[in-house]
Amino acid sequence: MNKIFFLAIFICSISFPQEITSTKTDLFSLANTKKFADYLFCQRDYLRAINEYNRYLLKTKSDSIVFKIAFAYSKMEEFQNSINTFQSIPKNSELFLQAKLEILKLLFQSNNFVELRKKITNDSLENKNAQPLLNLSFLFTNDNLPEKNDFCKPFPSEDLNKVKNFYEWKKDPPYKSPVAAGILSAIIPGLGKFYTQKFWDGVWGFISSVGFAYLSYDNFHADHNFRGWLFGGLAVGFYGGNIYGSAASAQIYNAKIQFDFVSEVKNFLERNNYFIPKINFCQ
């Protein structure tokens, strides 16, 4: 009897513990794959998370996992992959509307404003949610701006002042004209640099051009023709260089304020999550 009992113990001890621990020990089981993928996702290791989610999807279907994959791609700034993945979420899914909004955000992030506007105007489903995004897209293109009231309408009251400032800036950007800068420097050397707020450059431009011009005049006057020509040539060089430099300085000034403006609008959009509902998978 005892022998049989111990034989049973032996057989069970080999097979049974493996059975009861199999769910725990199979690191590649469906449940464990998802757990691990979620962990990677929350650790912002998006590429590995995508690989794990894809492994999960080989065995089962899940819209929320597809959504997470698309979301991970967007975090990696792989916009086209992200859009394609969001588009694969079916219409009957709970996440369909959110996916459409995410696509609009991605189109905005990838500066594809033509497609963005087409999608918003063609589809009434997300129209209301996407109106702020549609209006802000006009700040990044050279198309005609909508009326000020229409432009500001979809924004909450706390953002209204900021949005109005953006609108004003876009309508009448405080650019400096390169032609005006050149003409100013042609009239009075260095004045174009003052106009583009490069004050010290303006002072030096003025002194060098006028100084050499005077030296040229003075030397011709004293019959030192060689020096007269030498300084005259230098004066022309400094004068011409100053006109060119002033026009270039205006272009640099414009590029800088344009860059600052775009950065400010993008920061504003980031802070507001592009005016679409925010999802936190890692609470």
């Binding site: 113990i9 069970c12 001890s13 049974f16 513990p17 009861i20 725990k24 020990t25």
Partner: peptide, 10 residues
């Protein structure tokens, strides 16, 4: 036996 073997397996 069960305890020991399951731990070993883990």
């Amino acid at each position: 036996f069960i305890l020991v073997f399951s731990n070993l397996n883990a």
